[in-house]
Design a protein around this nucleic acid. Structure first.
Length: 216
DNA sequence: GACCAGGCACATC
DNA sequence: GATGTGCATGGT
């Protein structure tokens, strides 16, 4: 039997040594992290960033401002992020959730146990597992491991997990085999994305994969 | 011009 | 629970 805990640590060290700290999440405030998490859904970060820049420029990156702006104007401003009509509604949905349950106060929302908040976030239309977990880890600073398409691709290619494993299954795999440290979870997910961006697009391409030395 | 990017909701079986 | 589809921009 493979010692998954040991292998996961080994992979982390390898990625960190190769790429260094990724300094996630690139945002000024927890609120900006949340907005960014919604805008970057199935979208390159560069495009999500353009949308955020537009919102900042129009002074719309606050709870109150997004609550008061029309969906139409919001959609127009976030256009570079793609799916702009859907995402405008999603942003509105989150703001409504925040306003109705926590007086629009992010800190109040975060003042509860992580998986309790997680289940509430998942009920907001537009927030799925990855977005919820990104909010919990990168905005709230809670030790929740974020899974994305790269994670499944990379770890199944290295035969550490089945390629059809569910989001929950994969998240449990990481969380059962790693210490629940925010710092570690933060950097680990970011490094996985970093690796995925570089080489794990469509082919394994293991010749230049820094993980090729990880023993099978 | 195809393919991809730090997903998600919804319909259908 | 699994599988298929719409949503949309900008870079390679």
């Amino acid at each position: 039997m493979r010692n998954h805990s040991k292998t996961l640590k080994e992979i982390y060290r390898c990625l960190y040594k190769t790429f260094g700290p990724q300094k996630w999440w690139p945002a000024d405030t927890p609120f900006e992290v949340i907005i960014g998490a919604i805008l970057t859904q199935n979208t390159s970060w560069a495009n999500a960033e353009r949308a955020i820049k537009n919102l900042k420029q129009k002074k719309l990156l606050t709870v109150k401002a997004i609550r008061n702006v029309s969906v139409k104007r919001l959609a127009k401003l976030i256009k570079p992020a793609g799916y702009y009509n859907q995402k405008a509604k999603k942003l509105k949905n989150f703001i409504r959730f925040l306003s109705e349950n926590y007086q629009g106060n992010i800190k109040t929302m975060f003042n509860q146990e992580a998986f309790n908040l997680r289940s509430k976030l998942l009920k907001v239309n537009g927030i799925g597992p990855e977005t919820a977990d990104s909010i919990l880890l990168y905005a709230a600073g809670k030790p929740v491991f974020v899974i994305d398409a790269y994670t499944r691709r990379i770890f199944s290619r290295h035969s550490l997990i089945g390629e059809n494993i569910s989001y929950q299954g994969l998240q449990n795999y990481f969380m059962n085999n790693l210490k629940p440290e925010v710092r570690l979870f933060n950097e680990y997910h970011a490094l996985i994305v970093r690796l995925g961006k570089q080489i794990c697009k469509t082919k394994p391409n293991c010749d230049i994969c820094p993980l090729k030395e990880i023993k099978k």
